[in-house]
Design a protein around this nucleic acid. Structure first.
Ligand SMILES: NC(=O)c1ccc[n+]([C@@H]2O[C@H](COP(=O)([O-])OP(=O)(O)OC[C@H]3O[C@@H](n4cnc5c(N)ncnc54)[C@H](O)[C@@H]3O)[C@@H](O)[C@H]2O)c1
Ligand SMILES: NC(=O)c1ccc[n+]([C@@H]2O[C@H](COP(=O)([O-])OP(=O)(O)OC[C@H]3O[C@@H](n4cnc5c(N)ncnc54)[C@H](O)[C@@H]3O)[C@@H](O)[C@H]2O)c1
Lengths: 215, 215
DNA sequence: AGACTCTTGTGAACTAATGCACAAGGTGTC
DNA sequence: GACACCTTGTGCATTAGTTCACAAGAGTCT
């Protein structure tokens, strides 16, 4: 069938990869891309590419491939990339500063418009163009800049409180780097990025292969 | 049955969460924890906890729960947490510095022992206790410190070259933050952490709910 | 001892995701 | 127009993961 239905979560997670892969094709120039090529560019297999894209609609041409520009447009549409979602960074420490300083976010429609930090020395300063406010200002910030996404890069102990404050301010999308479980109402979407866990998964496989392999 | 079999990937990804949840229980004190409690602590449901733990062995007591200390020990064993896996950070920019400065990694057995950077101003300096070397030194570093994991926090354009260098040096585990697909031999495990993609997934759901909800 | 209360461990049903394989449909050539 | 050649779109089988639901133990109380 065609476009309307629900898009599987696994597909949603790959759409940004396809979009990124399509950057290899210059804008303006008409070019076609096959599911095979796109698979290479996105690091998945071709069958997955076709199945994923079929959830958006039938935008390819049999025997030919997909029009790169048109496909980019359609994926962008599905992802809602045209929108700009202002981001507030909570906790302007090592990680928060790196995030605020990162141009890649703004480029993709996620400008970091403000930050909060509990450190009095930081409050009132402007770091890499991002003004740092007191945590108590969060509600104001969200309202003023129409913040859509909150990033939590505070220490773990302050994460739940920060999440509560974000939710209270009306933010329904949170990306957290704090190594804790956050609780929030069901309608709030939380994506937890736990780098230590990622390393531990790598460690697990290393461990396994060392046991199996040799001494 | 019991311990020997292969542990499903989804389970492996959750074991670190359980381990983290068990930190709520003081060491030395004997305490029991039920699958329900552990589920709360790890942010999953109880059935999953039990099924996951059953892959490690039958370490619980019916009607009682799991001994917290013993369970922690068994999960640690499965994950190979006792090992120390030295890490090299490639690309000592905003993100690399944040990673190198992060104590949470060393605490969990992933000490950042060295870094590389192509910037002549950075080479030879010591940032947060981590010495910065030229990329050409990578092989030496890996050998000298017995590096097990390479972190790629270079610009996207330098990521594949860095990955190649890591692989050539014998590193088989890579965590990359660069927004690119990396190719490497099959035996190399690559975990790609793409923060922009995470934001785009949040953006997708925001987009969807705004369309469905109201104007 | 027997009844009652817990909570584990696990078959079994269900759901999601992946990958295969091929018909359908399009292009180009003679 | 017929034929050869591509590549999509998708039905289907397979595999992976989740969730249910309950019997099997283990403790407790009377
Ligand atoms: N740095 C890393 O590479 C890294 C890696 C993995 C996970 N993390 C996690 O990310 C989080 C931040 O790490 P970091 O290295 O930037 O730590 P950090 O200590 O450098 O920064 C934390 C910042 O949060 C501020 N803060 C404290 N309480 C606050 C509150 N209630 N509201 C707003 N700000 C508050 C502090 O003043 C500080 O500036 C931690 O939870 C850490 O575990 C960091
Ligand atoms: N900063 C963030 O919050 C953030 C977020 C998402 C993704 N990323 C990605 O992480 C990567 C690093 O981001 P960043 O903000 O730290 O960038 P950055 O520009 O601050 O740092 C990159 C560093 O890599 C060094 N470098 C360049 N080529 C190198 C090479 N061949 N070998 C070793 N070092 C080399 C540069 O000298 C620089 O110091 C980028 O790919 C970026 O897209 C960063």
């Amino acid at each position: 069938m065609a476009s309307p239905g629900r898009i599987p979560e696994a597909t949603v997670a790959r759409l940004p990869l396809y979009l990124r892969g399509l950057d290899a094709f210059p804008v303006g120039v008409t070019a076609t891309v096959s599911s095979d090529e796109l698979a290479d560019l996105a690091g998945v297999n071709a069958a997955k590419v076709r199945k994923d894209l079929s959830h958006l609609g039938t935008y390819g041409t049999r025997g030919v491939g997909y029009d790169a520009t048109f496909l980019r447009f359609q994926i962008s549409l599905a992802l809602g990339v045209a929108n700009v979602w202002p981001v507030v960074v909570c906790g302007m420490g090592n990680l928060g500063r790196a995030l605020a300083n990162h141009t890649g976010f703004t480029d993709r429609g996620f400008p970091v418009v403000a930050a909060t930090d509990s450190d009095p020395d930081k409050i009132g300063t402007i770091v890499d163009g991002v003004p740092v406010h007191a945590p108590s200002q969060l509600g104001d910030i969200v309202r003023r800049f129409d913040v859509a996404i909150g990033v939590i890069s505070t220490p773990a102990g302050a994460a739940q409180g920060t999440a509560d404050a974000l939710v209270a301010a009306g933010v329904t999308s949170i990306m957290s780097f704090a190594p804790t479980v956050l609780s929030a109402p069901d309608e709030v979407e939380i994506r937890s990025v736990d780098l230590a866990t990622e390393l531990q998964i790598l460690g697990f496989h290393l461990h396994r292969s060392r046991i199996a392999g040799d001494s």
